[in-house]
Design a protein around this nucleic acid. Sequence first.
DNA 1: TTCAATTAGTGGCATATGCCACTTTCGGTG
DNA 2: CACCGAAAGTGGCATATGCCACTAATTGAA
Lengths: 154, 154
Amino acid sequence: MTEVRKPGFSSCNNATLRRAARSLGRFYDDALAPSGLKGTQFGLLFQIHVGSEPTMGTIAEALIIDLSALGHTLKPLIRDGYVETFADKDDRRVKRVRLTPQGETKLDEAIKLWSVAQQQFEDRVGAEQAAKLRAALDEVADLNLEIPTAAPSP
Amino acid sequence: MTEVRKPGFSSCNNATLRRAARSLGRFYDDALAPSGLKGTQFGLLFQIHVGSEPTMGTIAEALIIDLSALGHTLKPLIRDGYVETFADKDDRRVKRVRLTPQGETKLDEAIKLWSVAQQQFEDRVGAEQAAKLRAALDEVADLNLEIPTAAPSP
DNA sequence: TTCAATTAGTGGCATATGCCACTTTCGGTG
DNA sequence: CACCGAAAGTGGCATATGCCACTAATTGAA
């Protein structure tokens, strides 16, 4: 049979996901542009905002982002005065994070801009559909997939 | 009801998408690690492979990636000898891309690794479900959303 | 043919993410 | 209490992406 040998690139779940992320990312970034924040920064500020002075580790786990990557991403936000960190009272290894007053203000400003993009997206795909997509994505994100280690009998 | 009130950060389509992308990205990256390629590079090599000596612009459009970003991403692949570029015969502004023999070899090697991850993913979520998710993501990616320009009546 | 407008890429700069090696703290043990 | 191994971050290095300004090559008038 003259079957297609190459497994259609578009069949790669990872590539498809990244492609969509780039596309949607630019849309949200454009919407947030007036605030000077990127979509990622907005999401991070929000996460910090809803948390109770969360620790780096807590945030990293919630967003499924590498701890060191979180540290890097946090830097510009600290530099711009939106976020501040402080050592945990009981465990000095732990660093807690919180928004500064300016951070809260900036977040409020950004939420207004975000809403426009969010609304427009939902208008296009339907709130119902959007919710389903998010649920599916959360499910994927929480699959906790792992490549079987080649190492067998130690 | 003591329901969680948070306007759920998780309601942000963009944040949810990125989170899933980070999660799945690491999985595929781990699978491809033995080849020395990242998921993104694999996808790019594949895209070049299936194209007919595509131009930078063509690839960028297909993957919905910024043209300059594509150029940056291509550099390590060129440096490592997997990809080469050459000027188009009819339009010297256009640069075409193709895999080198080593590139083809590396791609074949990577496809084997990729298959393991891909298969495992589909086993977990179901091939049917995975296909639906990809379709939904492609739909989102191709929405061509735009933030209404503030500029009104010129 | 000559020149303005358009098209395709490049290079610089900045953020986004990851992995790895290393440092500082803790917690548990002998 | 001294010591070892785990836990939480940090810094360095590399790739992933974007935007903007700028260059080179084309195209479409005038």
